[in-house]
Design a protein around this nucleic acid. Structure first.
Length: 680
DNA sequence: AAATGAAACGTTTTT
DNA sequence: CGTTTCATTT
């Protein structure tokens, strides 16, 4: 049983009576084991698994914990536990309540916001700075929601970004317009999911016996409000003040700091025995973190015995020399590659390293199947899939139709609007049962390309259309009356018509993915993409390259099909891509991780690289908003990075970047760690 | 209005 | 370095 392996402190925490319990668990003190044991303890004592909610920072973490509990209880039991990220759980329970949700990635919504932003004029306003871009404004708005600011968005701008006060009214109006537009398409984003869920919780039907919160130090006020809105008998929060690294996402260490004040009957447990790291690694980490103001004393007890090398500083003349040397060290290391991690402050550091590792034939694993889900072919499949589920998804429609020859964003939107019109607000009906309208397009639509010959073009089109071998209800659709409609485009729309018709009755996600990538529409798209990828500079097409590209596209499509097999619900699959797609890591071997991504993980051998002053900590960010606490967060990041190591730790930096022609000094954290003598 | 080619840009971190 | 924005051509 998981409880028997616990030490006294852990056992006390894991068996704490119902109530408001806070467990302060420093790096490597067996946090996960304690949570797993807690769940086991509750299940043993008659708590139903469905009465437990486990909130984690990543879905992977939730899965791992449930799996560990599952070693002691039947699978059917542990699967009943409501476990996942705040967002995943919010989605799941909202879905259960029958709400229609079209989850969109921030990137997509930024495009939507930009379309509104572009129409605004800022030039008449006198301000010392240029207005924020739509993308940045979206991020600020997101932060506004995450910190649960008490007041309007405009007021938030005036308080936090005084330089932009002159724009605050426009910003607020813009955001209001944005919210309306989002509502029109049922679009929802990460924050929206939480807000909607909190709203739903106000009905008071959702109740749990105990809520367990992992990584409590990174909870923001929005998430905290969610926790507070769920009816519960008991709260079990686990975190470490020193590992709070998500301030940019609104994480508020005040939440963990004031737990005792917020919950009068709170009990605090502290885990002090470190099982992970060697003595030398731990004391280095502690030397640095002790420079931060202490919220509570930290006395970590080393339990690891054995002879381990002291942490080593590596200094290089040039950035790429560093990457090359580290790749070489990894190739010569006795540690298993999957037990080695290279950790960095900025993702940009990974590229150079990855290349050098590849050169030595060493496999590496990077977080974020980014390249996979961001590839055009996968996006196209997902767009078609999204439209089949939610035909009125305008963003997906426009992206998709931009693949048609001679169609850009504006024309695509015209077609969408026309379908919307003839379908009386329903794209399905617009496609399959259009209202008989003469011409759904606005009168002003003209052919700018060949303005003089408009009539002629229309004449030619009519002839070609009549020759087509299409079903009557398709070819009679008034949306085909656009003056710029041609045979190719009609073909494209017809292929679209076919896959939508076929796909809408397919209820299994994997089957649907397969139908889509076997469809003529996708065939057309993959051909377009492959041809583009095989086109040389001089315009000639390399046939071998083209075949190759086609093959890779098909492989990716098949991989997507494989991934979809884990789901039974069409909506869940598509939204899981947004909710957890970034967690997927690709490949095997050496782990390349940003510090944020390394959270909660541990490795025998760790390289923390690019430790240059200015890069880590990053000065631009330090002065942002005049926030003097930023340096403390950077220090916590350093602490998180080095405490990932069990036995071997290297810290490295380079003095010069030849590409950017910048000279660097070592990070001040290396001084604090006692590895570099302070510069006078 | 779309396609193409050239120039600028910017680079924290995540659900 | 690769993406995104801008300017030019069709």
């Amino acid at each position: 049983m998981p409880l028997s392996k616990l030490n006294k402190e852990q056992l006390e925490a894991a068996t704490a009576p119902f109530g408001n319990n806070l467990i302060i668990a420093s790096a490597g003190t067996g946090k996960t084991s304690t949570i797993v044991a807690r769940i086991a303890h509750l299940l043993q004592n008659g708590v139903e698994p469905s009465e437990l909610m486990l909130l984690t920072f990543t879905n992977k973490a939730a899965l791992e914990m449930v799996e560990r509990v599952g070693r002691f209880f039947p699978k059917e039991v542990v699967n009943e536990i409501e476990a996942g990220t705040f967002h995943a759980i919010a989605y799941r329970l909202l879905k259960k309540s029958g709400r229609e949700l079209v989850l969109k990635e921030p990137k997509e919504l930024k495009i939507l916001l930009r379309s509104l932003h572009e129409k605004r004029r800022f030039s008449h306003i006198e301000a010392s700075t240029a207005p924020y871009s739509a993308s940045y404004l979206y991020d600020i708005y997101s932060l506004y929601q995450n910190v649960a600011f008490d007041g309007s968005f405009g007021a938030f701008i005036e308080e936090r970004y005084p330089d932009h006060s002159p724009y605050s009214d426009i910003y607020q109006d813009l955001i209001e317009e944005f919210e309306v537009l989002k509502g029109k398409f049922n679009y929802i984003d990460f924050n929206g999911l939480l807000l909607e869920f909190i709203d739903y919780l106000k009905d008071g039907e959702i109740a749990f016996k105990e809520i367990l919160v992992d990584e409590y130090q990174d909870t923001n006020r929005l998430q905290n409000s969610l926790i507070e809105h769920i009816k519960k008998e008991s709260l079990f929060c686990v975190g470490d003040y020193d590992q709070s690294i998500y301030a940019f996402n609104g994480a508020d260490i005040g939440i963990i700091g004031s737990f005792k004040d917020n919950y009068p009957n709170a009990k605090v447990f502290t885990l002090t025995k470190n099982y992970r790291s060697s003595k030398a690694i731990l004391s280095l980490a502690n030397r640095v973190i002790s420079k931060n103001p202490r919220l509570y004393p930290k006395e970590l007890e080393v339990t690891k015995t054995g002879n381990f090398p002291p942490p080593k500083l590596l200094v290089f003349h040039e950035l790429f020399e560093q990457y090359e040397a580290i790749a070489k060290m990894i190739s010569e290391s006795k540690t298993k590659h999957s037990e080695i991690a290279v950790i960095f402050r900025n993702n940009a550091s990974a590229d150079g390293l990855e290349a050098n590792l590849r050169e030595l034939g060493i496999a590496s694993k990077r977080k974020g199947g980014v390249s996979f889900f961001d590839s055009k072919e996968i996006k196209a499949i997902i767009d078609i899939y999204s439209i089949i589920l939610n035909p009125n998804d305008m963003m997906s429609f426009i992206h998709l139709f931009e693949y048609a020859k001679g169609v850009g964003g504006v024309f695509a939107k015209d077609i969408f609007d026309a379908l919307y019109k003839v379908g009386e607000g329903d794209i399905y009906r617009g496609l399959f049962d259009p209202k008989d309208k003469k011409n759904p397009y606005k009168k002003g639509v003209v052919n700018h390309q060949l303005g003089l010959f408009d009539d002629v073009v229309e004449e030619i089109n009519r002839v070609k259309i009549d020759k087509g071998n299409y079903p009557a209800n398709f070819i009679k659709n008034p949306i085909l009356k656009h003056p710029r409609m041609n045979r190719d485009l009609i073909d494209f729309i017809y292929r679209f018509y076919q896959i939508v018709k076929k796909g809408r009755s397919t209820l299994n996600p994997a089957k649907l993915v397969r139908e889509i990538y076997k469809s003529e529409l996708f065939h057309y798209i993959s051909n377009t993409l492959a041809t583009k990828r095989a086109t040389n500079r001089d315009g000639s097409i390399d046939e071998t390259k083209r075949e190759d590209a086609l093959l890779r596209i098909e492989q990716k499509a098949r991989l997507l099909e494989e991934l979809s097999k884990n789901y039974e619900d069409r909506y869940r699959f598509i939204n899981s891509i947004t909710l957890g797609g970034g967690e997927m890591s690709q490949g095997e071997g050496v782990n390349l991780l940003s510090i944020h991504a390394s959270k909660g993980l541990e490795f025998d051998e760790v390289f923390v690289i690019d430790l240059m002053d200015g890069r880590f900590p990053n000065y631009k960010l330090l002065n942002k908003n005049g926030n003097s606490e930023n340096i403390e967060e950077e220090r916590r990041l350093f602490y998180v990075a080095v405490t990932r190591a069990r036995e071997i730790l290297y810290l490295s930096y380079a003095k010069y970047d030849k590409i950017k022609d910048i000279e660097y000094l070592h990070s001040p954290f290396l001084e604090e760690a006692g590895l570099v003598k302070p510069t006078p």
